[in-house]
Each structure stands twice: as structure tokens, then as C-alpha cells.
Design a protein around this nucleic acid. Structure first.
Lengths: 163, 163
DNA sequence: TTGCTAATGTTATAATGTTGCAAATTTCAC
DNA sequence: GTGAAATTTGCAACATTATAACATTAGCAA
């Protein structure tokens, strides 16, 4: 088992962010997509927490940067980053998080801790295939699959009532 | 296979709504919960389409009813209905839909058609257990599971590009 | 340069959801 | 029944999230 997946574990976060940015640059280059300063900055901000960040949180930091940005700036950057699989939107939180499997095609599943807000993205082939099977039984053709699990992460599970 | 699940199939929709309301009354009675006129009307409106309905859509119909309602009226009714498992919120659409398994404990999965907007709620034990297994491998304790699949339903699948 | 496309700036507004408090209604013990 | 307590509703204001529309600028190729 994996008692201490990345977001829950102490790690060199600056390096972790730097690596994500390096990978992002490479992915964009491969696709002839321009990772402009604003887009890169947004990606960096998102990576600086393992917690999901709202669009207006990002906007606030950009404002601190001295960047006089309006909502469309952020949403456009987020659209771009999602398009290239660099960030995911968590629908149940209206927030965004860095993709830990950027580049690789994957159907993610998110474990969202209600207590510490950390989010772990998993590639869960078993889940994906179960979803596809269930959809196929209804002759439904899946296009986009959202799987978000709220609950308590290993570090927080003890703090909570066990009814 | 099931080529024609309820929402895709022509059926006596008035009866279908009426049955949902009857069941709701019974469930509320069992829980000593009050299905007040407003709550019942909101549930009825939601059931009158198999398509997800936004809170402000509901609000608009209440206004046509002559009910001078404000957003909290609708959201409170929706909270109540969700609490007793009578409706579900579809996070990826910010919309609500009647629960087809009210009363029974279940972890739903939603098949959302991008073309006709119908939503089919499935009880998918295979999916639920795959999710629980994946979560357990990370020592994560699930609390609430959201599974929403966008794509094309059997009736609409032919109309769409097949890249 | 010129001209094209992609990206950004800017203003306004739409869509979704919440807080807080007062008034009305229902419940329930007496 | 009556009156206190709890639940539900009305209502106004506000908070948050997201988009539309149009002008401007940057990057790049002929």
C-alpha cells in the first residue's frame, strides 16, 4: 500500500513546482502551443499548492504581482492549461489543480480531503473500466468522465468523528 | 442489454411524476420530515423533465406560478430534497435532477447526454466498489462520491461526429 | 513594412449561490 | 385550547463564479 502519497508527504515543493513547469514547457513545445508568461504564472500558482485554487484566488495573487488582471485573463489561461491537460477543474469545488499525469492520456479520479483540502489525483484503471462497462451496458458513449471523491485523507482520518 | 432506459423511452410522464411524488411523500413521512407545498412543487418541477434543471430555472417557474420566491426559497427546498435523497445535484452542470432510486441507499452514477441533455442515473455497484478499492489503497476514507459521465446517449450517438 | 493570427486588456454583465434577520407557521407539552 | 419552542418561509442584500463583446497589442511570416 501507499500510506503517503505525494500531496500528504513532506517534499521539496519548490522543486516539485519547478519540475511541473519544465514538463509543461516541454508539452507545450511539442504541441506548438505558447506557454506565455501569464499562462505560466497561473500554472505556477496552481502548483504551489496541492490544494485546489479558485479562479478568483489566482486573480488575487496576480493582483499582488502588480498584474492588473481581470477575470477573463485567468479563465482564458485556465482554459488553455486544461486544453493541454496541465490542470484539472474540480467541478464539486469550482476550483483548479495541477495535473500530476500531464502528457500521459489518463482518466483521473480525485480524492479530496474535507479536512485539509489536499487533493490526490489517481489514475484508476479499474474505475475507468468499470465506468466504461456500465456506460456500454446502456449503449452510452462516454466522452468525459468526472470522478470526485470527498472524504478524509490518511493524515486527517483520525481527527474525524467515526459514527 | 437495455437499449431504452427510462429517460430515453416514451412513457406516461404525468404518471411517472405522480409516482415520484407519492414515493417522496411516503419517504418524508417515514422520516418525520415535512414535504411542504413549496418543497413538493420544486420536486414536481424537477421531475417534470428528465433533464437537469438549474435553481434559477425552478425559480422562474415558481414566479410564473405567482409564487413570489427568491433564490433562498429554491435553494432551501433543494437542500431539503437532497437531504432525503429525493434529488441529486449534478456538479458538472450546476443543476438538479430527480433521484430514481429514492429511499434505497445507493451511490449513483450519471450518464449525461451532451446532445439531448437527458440524464440517466445508474446504480453501478461495480463502479462503486472499484472506487472504494482505489480509495482504500490510498488509505482514504470516502464520504461522498461524485461520478458524472458526459457523452452521447443511445438516441443521439448517431448524430455526432465519430473521429 | 505589411498584413495575418493569436493573445491580452477592458468594461460590463450574467449566472450561481449565501447570509442574516424578521415574520409566519407548525409542533408539542401542558 | 394555550403558549413557548422549533421549524419554515419571506425578503433584502450580497458574495462568488463565469462569460460576452469589443478594442488593443504582440508574434510572426511574406
Amino acid at each position: 500500500m501507499s500510506p503517503s502519497a505525494l500531496p500528504y508527504r513532506p517534499h521539496n515543493h519548490d522543486a516539485c513546482v519547478a519540475q511541473a513547469l519544465t514538463e509543461a514547457r516541454s508539452i507545450c513545445q511539442q504541441h506548438n502551443a505558447r506557454l506565455t508568461p501569464t499562462r505560466e504564472r497561473v500554472l505556477e500558482l496552481i502548483w504551489q499548492s496541492h490544494k485546489p485554487l479558485g479562479a478568483y484566488d489566482i486573480l488575487a495573487v496576480l493582483a499582488e504581482d502588480g498584474h492588473n488582471a481581470a477575470p477573463p485573463t485567468v479563465y482564458r489561461a485556465l482554459d488553455f492549461l486544461q486544453q493541454y491537460g496541465l490542470v484539472h477543474r474540480i467541478a464539486s469545488l469550482n476550483a483548479f489543480i495541477g495535473c500530476t499525469h500531464a502528457g500521459k492520456s489518463h482518466s483521473g479520479m480525485f480524492l479530496i480531503c474535507r479536512s485539509c483540502s489536499n487533493v490526490l489525483e489517481l489514475t484508476a484503471p479499474g474505475v475507468a473500466s468499470a465506468v466504461n462497462t456500465a456506460a456500454a451496458e446502456e449503449s452510452f458513449r462516454p466522452d468525459d468522465v468526472t470522478i470526485e471523491v470527498s472524504g478524509y485523507c490518511p493524515g486527517c482520518t483520525s481527527d474525524t468523528p467515526h459514527d
